[in-house]
C-alpha cells in the first residue's frame, strides 16, 4: 500500500522529468537549429503579426484601465497625507516594475499562448507536422522557432506599450479630472524613476516572461495528445502553467533586482 504510493510518486517524478527534458529539447532544437534568415524573416513577420499585433488591442485597453484605476486609488490614498503630487511616481513605479510586465504576461498567456498551443496541437492532430517532416522540412525550424522568436520579441514591446498607456491613463485621471498640477505629476515621476533601475529592470522581466510563456505554449502544443480533448487540455495547461510560472518568476526576479539580496 505504502509501496504503491511511493511507486506512484516515483512514476510521477520520472514522467515530469521526462516532460521537462522534452521541453528543453524543443527549445534547444529550435533555437540552436536556427533557420536560414532568408526563410526565417517572412515566417517571423507573420508570427509577430499573430502574436504581437493581434494582442495590441487587449494590451492597450487593459493598460489604460489599470493606469486609470491606479491614478484614482493612488490619489484617494495619497491625498490624506497631502502628497497627492506623488501619484505620478507611484503609478510609474508600480507599472514599470511590476504591473506592466506581469499583467502583460498574463494577458499574453491567455491571448497568444493559448492560440499558439491550440494551433500547434491542431497541426499535430491533422498530421501537418508529420507531413512537414516527410517533406524533409524540420518542424522545429519551420513551425516552432519563428513562434518562439516572435514571442521573445513581442513581449517586451507589449509590456512597454502597456506601461506607457497606463501612465498616460493615470495622467488623464489625476491631472485632467482630479486636478493635480501636471508639472508636479511629471516632475515627481521623472525624479523618482530611474531609467536603468526601473525601466530596464522591467524590460528584463518582460523578456524573461515572454520567454517562459512562449516556451510553455509551444511545448504544450507540440507535446499534446493529438485529439480534440488533448488539445483543449493542453491549451488550459498552457494558460495555467504560464500564469503560475510568471507569478513565481516575478517574485524571484523582484527579489534579485530590488530586494538587496
Amino acid at each position: 500500500m505504502i509501496l504503491d504510493n511511493i511507486q506512484r510518486l516515483g512514476h510521477r517524478t520520472l514522467s515530469k522529468c521526462a516532460a521537462f527534458g522534452r521541453s528543453g529539447q524543443i527549445l534547444f532544437q529550435s533555437i540552436v537549429a536556427r533557420p536560414a534568415p532568408m526563410m526565417m524573416l517572412p515566417l517571423l513577420i507573420k508570427q509577430i503579426y499573430f502574436i504581437g499585433v493581434l494582442s495590441l488591442v487587449i494590451i492597450v485597453v487593459s493598460g489604460a484601465f489599470i493606469g486609470m484605476v491606479l491614478g484614482l486609488q493612488g490619489y484617494t490614498i495619497l491625498v490624506d497625507y497631502g502628497s497627492e503630487q506623488a501619484v505620478g511616481q507611484m503609478v510609474a513605479l508600480s507599472l514599470l516594475r511590476e504591473l506592466a510586465p506581469v499583467v502583460t504576461a498574463l494577458l499574453f498567456a491567455g491571448r497568444a499562448g493559448s492560440a499558439l498551443t491550440a494551433e500547434i496541437g491542431l497541426m499535430k492532430a491533422t498530421e501537418q507536422l508529420a507531413s512537414l517532416e516527410m517533406i524533409g522540412v524540420d518542424p522545429y525550424r519551420r513551425i516552432i522557432a519563428p513562434r518562439l522568436y516572435a514571442g521573445f520579441i513581442c513581449m517586451p514591446l507589449l509590456s512597454m506599450i502597456f506601461a506607457v498607456v497606463g501612465i498616460w491613463g493615470a495622467a488623464v485621471v489625476a491631472v485632467d479630472w482630479l486636478g493635480i498640477y501636471s508639472g508636479a505629476y511629471w516632475a515627481n515621476m521623472q525624479q523618482a524613476v530611474d531609467f536603468r533601475e526601473d525601466v530596464i529592470n522591467g524590460l528584463i522581466k518582460a523578456v524573461v516572461f515572454g520567454f517562459i510563456v512562449t516556451w510553455i505554449a509551444v511545448y504544450q502544443g507540440y507535446d499534446c495528445v493529438p485529439t480534440s480533448e488533448g488539445i483543449s487540455q493542453a491549451t488550459t495547461r498552457t494558460v495555467v502553467y504560464a500564469s503560475l510560472a510568471v507569478l513565481g518568476f516575478d517574485f524571484v526576479l523582484t527579489a534579485l533586482m530590488f530586494g538587496d539580496l
Partner: peptide, 29 residues
Amino acid sequence: FIVRERMGMLFQSGALFTDMNVFDNIAFP
C-alpha cells in the same frame, strides 16, 4: 531529412497545410 527528400507520403487525412491554398501546398516541397 536528406533521405526523406527521396520519399513522398500521402497521409491518411491528407494533412494539407491549412494556412496555405492548394497551389502553395503543392508548391511547398
